[in-house]
Amino acid sequence: MKKIFFSYGLVLLSTSALAQSSVTLYGSLDMGVDFNTNSKGSHLVQAVAGKRQPDRFGFLIREDLGGGTAAVARLESGFLTGTGASISPTSFFNRYAYVGLTNNSYGTVTMGNIPDYVYEYIGALNNAVPGISSFYTTGNLDGLANTRALNNSVKYESPDFYGFQFGLMNAFGNQAGDFSSGRQYSIGAKYWHGPAKVSFAYSMSHDRTADLFGIFGVTSVLGQKLGTGVLFNADRYSTLAIAGSYQIDRFLPHLTYTDVKLTNSEGSVRERNYQGGVNMDLTGTHEYILGLSYNRSIFQELTFNQYNVFLDWYLSKSTELYAGVGLERASGPNAHAAQFGYQVSTSDSQTIGRVGIHHLF
């Protein structure tokens, strides 16, 4: 990350130009070549961006106000290195956009466009760290990959008490006369201290859609007919997530469990996801990291088992060369393998391999 110091008088043309803010510019660039054994029925070799980590750039802004209090803000935008295009045609700062206040004793309050606690507290502990995007759970229904943030949200996060933190947030639906319509909320708690990391999170969305046909190939769920471009409409969409890891010398075993529940007036359906693996520092210098992991996702009568291997070579703290392979097998009625971030297979199996380079700044 690079820090640049600006005067409000120069940047904002403010008349009160005595205060100083620190502005940190940061980002991530990733490019690689993929091989997919079954992409809609055909082998596919492609150069594609953002499969190790999402391509993005952002600004962290902080102004010390005295007495342990500071104003904070963050703006982060996702893009694709391969084309230079934004990942969203409708919002520029599509990953983070918030402003707030933080205090050493009382915690932090922010408002804006912010990911939920499932992503922020659980996302760092799953199989995709380290790994590639296909190591996330089938369909990413649990949101461990940061593909959406909560609009119009207010978030509180406690100070760090010897590794323990908790928080809650509410995203307003902004519907006149109906407070619950479109509303989303999330709570989370974590204990990250020394070699141990344990996290819990729960998120609920009102009136949210999911592409169950595109992911699982199901044509009817809870009385709703589905098809290409026709999404399932959930009155309630909840995610419960628990994760943990523990550093043992060069080995980092980790476990993650998520339970996604979609509900409407006809009842509910669930996707349960189990992830486990171990990351190994092969030399003890954090130069070569080997990751072995396993995913199991269950949705109705469909089961997806995936086996992953990942090798990381850190050329520096900021630059890495990597290679990863994920092998998925699906079972159940009309089952099709479907690794996250890639086209669905026409059979019950799919293998995706990738080699690439990733740089943080």
Rank of each mutant, 00 (worst) to 15 (best):
N151I: 04
V218G: 05
V278A: 13
G27D: 06
G177I: 06
Q224C: 05
S345N: 06
G27T: 04
S91A: 01
F6M: 07
Q350K: 09
G276A: 12
S238F: 02
Y117D: 03
K155I: 13
I122K: 12
I132N: 09
F5V: 10
S22I: 07
V118P: 09
G227Q: 03
F164Y: 14
A47C: 09
T285R: 13
M111L: 14
A47H: 08
D178I: 04
G227C: 00
M169W: 04
G188H: 01
Q306Y: 01
A71V: 11
Y156A: 11
V72M: 09
D207N: 15
N146G: 09
G27P: 06
Y288G: 03
A210P: 02
G112W: 04
G217H: 00
S7V: 06
L290T: 01
S205W: 00
G112C: 08
S22V: 13
R95K: 13
A335K: 00
A330V: 01
Y162D: 15
R183H: 12
A71L: 15
A243K: 03
V11H: 06
S238L: 08
F340C: 02
Y106G: 08
T81C: 05
P130W: 10
F166M: 14
T138N: 10
D207V: 07
G173R: 04
F304A: 05
E76K: 05
G27V: 11
G229P: 01
E271W: 02
N295Q: 14
V33R: 14
L292R: 01
Y96E: 04
N140K: 12
R95E: 09
N233D: 07
P253E: 00
L231E: 04
S134P: 02
G341S: 14
N308R: 00
A234K: 00
G9R: 09
D281P: 10
L29C: 06
H193G: 12
F179A: 15
R62Y: 10
T37V: 10
N127K: 02
L252R: 11
Q165D: 14
N38M: 09
T258V: 14
K317Q: 12
F213V: 06
D211E: 08
I289L: 15
V278D: 11
G107L: 02
E301L: 02
I187K: 10
R208Y: 11
F79C: 03
F5R: 05
Y117R: 09
T351Q: 12
Y294P: 05
L101W: 03
S349G: 12
I4H: 05
L12A: 13
N264V: 06
R270E: 12
A17W: 02
S77A: 15
A49F: 07
A19I: 10
T137S: 15
G163R: 11
V221M: 00
Q306I: 00
Y202Q: 06
D235Y: 05
A241R: 05
D259K: 15
D259Q: 15
K261L: 14
L25M: 10
S39Y: 03
L282D: 01
D249C: 08
A97N: 06
Q275Y: 13
T102G: 07
T219V: 08
Y191Q: 12
F232L: 08
N146A: 14
